[in-house]
């Protein structure tokens, strides 16, 4: 069966559109009639990934591949990279600047939540080059 593929650009210059890509992906999964818990897990993980791209990495893009048994999501940016992945994964760890925190972001729960809600998570990051997070969700 041909997988369903989608690609969304995430822009970093406009906060008002942050969350748009994850919203569209959520709508697609609902249209497919997927289980509410799967929809929720994907929606939360992708939302957090999308926000991270906006606040830490100057945007990027999200690729979605839906198969009958699995959803694969790739979040790719050409941002600064993550110097210490283990530290970044800790609940509450954040390097978000004060102005971003004032907007209600930067609680340091994004990466831990992505881990919690996905079935597989791989982080490939290189300083000065960018970060690619690959997620797998079982259906």
């Amino acid at each position: 069966m041909e997988p369903i593929r989608m690609k969304y650009e995430v822009r970093s210059d406009d906060f008002s559109v942050a969350g748009e890509a994850s919203g569209k992906i959520k709508r697609t999964l609902k249209d497919l009639g997927l289980d509410a818990s799967v929809v929720r897990n994907v929606a939360i993980a992708v939302y957090e990934g999308e926000i991270n791209m906006v606040i830490h990495a100057n945007g990027g893009y999200i690729e979605v591949e839906i198969n009958p048994d699995k959803i694969k999501i790739v979040l790719k940016d050409s941002g600064p990279g993550i110097p210490d992945v283990e530290k970044a994964m800790q609940a509450g760890f954040s390097t978000a600047p004060e102005n971003i925190r004032a907007l209600g972001f930067g609680a340091g729960m994004g990466l831990p939540n992505i881990k919690k809600y996905s079935d597989e998570m791989y982080i490939d990051t290189e300083l000065g080059v960018g970060t690619t997070i690959t997620l797998g969700f079982n259906i």
Binding site: M1, E2, P3, I4, M6, T28, K30, D31, L32, G33, L34, I66, P68, I139
Partner: peptide, 21 residues
């Protein structure tokens, strides 16, 4: 109310969505 669903099972829904896309 499942009216927004494309089909009752995932494979059919995927096929329909492929056509829609």
């Amino acid at each position: 109310n499942n009216i927004m669903r494309l089909a009752d099972n995932l494979k059919d829904a995927m096929r329909i969505m492929g056509e829609i896309n």
